[in-house]
Write a protein that binds this DNA or RNA. Structure first.
Lengths: 201, 201
DNA sequence: GGTCAAAACGGACTGCGGTCCGCTTCTATT
DNA sequence: AATAGAAGCGGACCGCAGTCCGTTTTGACC
């Protein structure tokens, strides 16, 4: 529209050129449309560029890769989930007993995967650094902390790794979509598992 | 060389034309060479075809896909492992207590992943049917059976799924290669986990 | 408004996995 | 040995993710 001020309203991080900002919005809007129409797996970077009316180079300049784009699309949902388990009300947030929080964490994560899992799968960077994206590290640390608080002294770091593996989107989606496992059954199994891990302490 | 008999020596399954058999050998040999030289991730189907002196179509006719090729390369090691946990000596094979067998299974699998994991990762078919390849199904059933024998009555099928997730090559390789976790530490954590799962029964 | 370097753009290009289909080679049969 | 058709072959071809680099846009400074 019109330039309001020469001084950036939100300086620092927000130093983004007007055309870049416009294109980012165009791309995100187009990406959401395409996913709505074709699913996350059906989105190709070329089609996205075309739909948004920009060049392919622009798409990759913005998001780095297909996985990066998916992460960006996920970031809102992810931030909300993180906020809930770090600062929200019990039993997921602080205030409840560690075991209760562990149980709630798994239950909420299962629900989250059922809602955003396809996107999360598409956001998985290939190979080795998939477990080192900020969100994964945060979940891992959270689980480790809860395990410590629950009195698990035997290598809580690796135990948190194991629990993370259990909640991986790919497995959960496979159980639900292919094997018709009901989400409540998944949650019950998680409760069972985490109770035994903690009680054995 | 020379044709020994018009009647196939091993009939039935072995009905493979001579040129097809020759090309399969050429391809497997070339594939092993290339993996030796460039690693499993460095092998491309085009290069493989070239090295073996056949067309690309032939490679895909034989193995279906890159993942299929990797599975074929793995099949010997996989069959050996399966034989050991199904028919071999205790504690991995039958004869030991279920918990002992579970512990041994994890330990052996960790060692197996450290030896063949890169190949196993490359053999992962994308997306949904990755957990339904015969080998994965067999491992899952084995774990489920051991859990039942150990007295785990609460949804042994899903519990076996969770334990399988813990032993996934990708996680194990990541822990060892990126986070420098010693294999014995992985084994100890597995022992701890599976003991708690079983004892809670 | 005019200037200019830095930032962003866009589409041709590469390399890959995978497919297709006309051609060649094999083998059972006579 | 001749034959026929099934099995196998091979490389041109496709769609995709990701890169490169000459061109265009932007906005801070004059």
């Amino acid at each position: 529209m019109c330039r309001v001020s020469l001084i950036p309203i939100r300086p620092g991080v927000e130093s983004e050129r007007r055309d870049a900002a416009r294109n980012r919005e165009l791309l995100l809007r187009a990406a959401r449309e395409l996913i709505e129409e074709c699913g996350a797996d059906g989105l190709t970077m070329g089609t996205l560029a075309q739909r948004a009316g920009v060049g392919k180079g622009t798409v990759f300049r913005r998001f780095g890769s297909r996985a990066g784009l998916m992460m960006t699309l996920l970031s809102d949902a992810e931030a909300a989930f993180q906020g809930r388990f770090m600062f929200g009300p019990p039993p997921l947030g602080p205030g409840a007993a560690p075991l209760e929080r562990l149980i709630a964490f798994g239950e909420e994560r299962i629900a989250w995967v059922l809602e955003f899992g396809e996107l999360a799968r598409a956001a998985d960077v290939s190979a080795y650094n998939r477990f080192d994206v900020p969100a994964a590290v945060l979940w891992h640390r959270h689980l480790e902390m809860l395990l410590r608080e629950a009195g698990v002294t035997a290598d809580p770091w690796l135990m948190a790794t194991s629990l993370s593996a259990v909640l991986e989107p790919e497995r959960i989606l496979h159980a639900v979509r292919v094997h018709q496992v009901a989400p409540e059954r998944l949650a019950a199994s998680w409760r069972e598992l985490v109770s035994r891990v903690v009680r054995g302490a």
